[in-house]
Design a protein around this nucleic acid. Structure first.
Lengths: 247, 247
DNA sequence: CACGCAGAGAATGTATCCAAAATATACGGT
DNA sequence: ACCGTATATTTTGGATACATTCTCTGCGTG
């Protein structure tokens, strides 16, 4: 096949980048059974590219710990462990807690107001018993915060984004119960309060607690795992960094 | 040139890995002027390999933020900024602070004793006015802690290691003044105390403070190259330590 | 029957080749 | 003299070909 070369300037993504993102997404979505051999040529055939971009993607993913060299014979996705999940959530809690404590010193009244409105709308969702609405506005709440972090602490933001990605692996079935939704909104209220009080220590505390709750929820869904869900990742186009809500 | 192929099994490192490490080291040591174009072929010639490992190394380094795509024409090392350095130290302080707070719950009496001996030996170095001895035992102190973190929190350890690497870029001239050495040992004493008390909050506090001090030292050496002034090792380098104490 | 060695096959490692794209330069027109 | 366009050069993007090495299997021997 002739390479429809796509440079990074002309808006299109290079094959290398597409391959990397697609493989990463597939790994995070659990499309590859743990410990199964990942053969460059097979993946290349699967994605319709040559071995070169696949190889580079695998080595980049190795750097992130998403694949591991299996002896001298290809790569594999390491098995999921409860320890790993717990550690990832811990790190995320620490990083996001600190990020929030940074934010509280610089956040504008305007942004506080926007966050407040997210909570209000999410609560309306609860009253109308529309969990998808709650989900939407909870996501918006977090997105606002992430954008602020990105603006002020780009490196920290990258790290947080990575942690969120890695955790995705452990969130196969994101079931949104009413109970979890209510608890999430309550967490957001506390976050908003800490921000409004401009109390760094409180910010760190409430964010850590909020993420610990998310961890607990995820741990629950993980107990009855082994759900081989061959859901195809059909988003092959230019995907934005999908920032998911905590809950 | 014929490939001296070296697989990962036979003890030797692959050319790919060697290239990546060497390039990374060169970047961190400041061998490449910021904003200067890094041309794949030139680097390949410089390292005596083909373009392939160089290209892969550059893309891995891009993932780490150590190089950046310059338009559509190659890579360059991004310029050093005070903000970046500050942020890296912040993140490191947060991560290592949390790591220490984890450690204090599981550390053995034996390890506490070993840490204590490091401090004692470093203090002997002070008395004998041998700064290299102090440096050696201070390093040992940290190494012991890092090994413990690695054992209990492998992901956290990786992140911390990365941050330390990235910071290396900003520590061109690691001048060890007597004053800084003394302060460092004092910091280690506080760390040991917090560990011994098994107080997670205190652990986090003292470690963050310790790393903030390191940041201040580094910031001083960064302001201008000719500042070999021991007085500037004090914590008054223009910008306040950005890492807040936890409490 | 088991253990070991050897050969074949398979998968990765590395290099080279070709194509595409962007920038720089030169030439011509206004 | 200046600006725009076209061409050429440089450099990266991607694929393929070749070398290397590891593993698996089969056969022979103890």
């Amino acid at each position: 096949m002739t390479a429809r070369s796509a440079r990074q300037n002309s808006g299109r993504l290079s094959v290398r980048e597409q391959t990397y993102r697609l493989l990463k997404k597939k790994i995070l979505n659990g499309h590859f059974p743990p410990e199964e051999r990942l053969v460059e040529e097979s993946l290349a055939g699967l994605l319709g590219v040559s071995r070169t971009p696949v190889r580079e993607a695998l080595h980049k993913l190795e750097l992130e710990g998403l694949v591991r060299q299996k002896g001298a014979r290809g790569f594999c996705v390491p098995a999921e462990t409860a320890e790993e999940m717990s550690e990832l959530f811990e790190i995320r809690a620490v990083l996001e807690g600190y990020a929030l404590s940074c934010l509280c010193r610089t956040i504008s009244e305007d942004d506080v107001q926007r966050l407040s409105e997210c909570i209000t709308r999410a609560e309306h969702g609860i009253l109308e018993n529309k969990l998808d609405l709650v989900f939407e506005h909870n996501t918006e709440f977090h997105d606002i915060i992430y954008q602020l972090v990105r603006k002020e602490r780009p490196r920290l933001f990258n790290l947080i984004e990575d942690m969120r990605d890695y955790i995705l692996r452990y969130r196969k079935n994101t079931l949104g119960t009413l109970r979890a939704a209510k608890r999430s909104i309550f967490g957001h209220k506390k976050i908003l309060m800490a921000l409004d009080l401009k109390d760094p220590v409180l910010c760190e505390q409430v964010m850590r607690a909020h993420i610990s709750e998310a961890e607990a929820d995820t741990a629950c869904t993980m107990t009855d795992a082994s759900s081989a869900d061959p859901q195809q990742a059909n988003n092959s186009g230019g995907q934005a960094p999908t920032v998911l809500p905590l809950k």
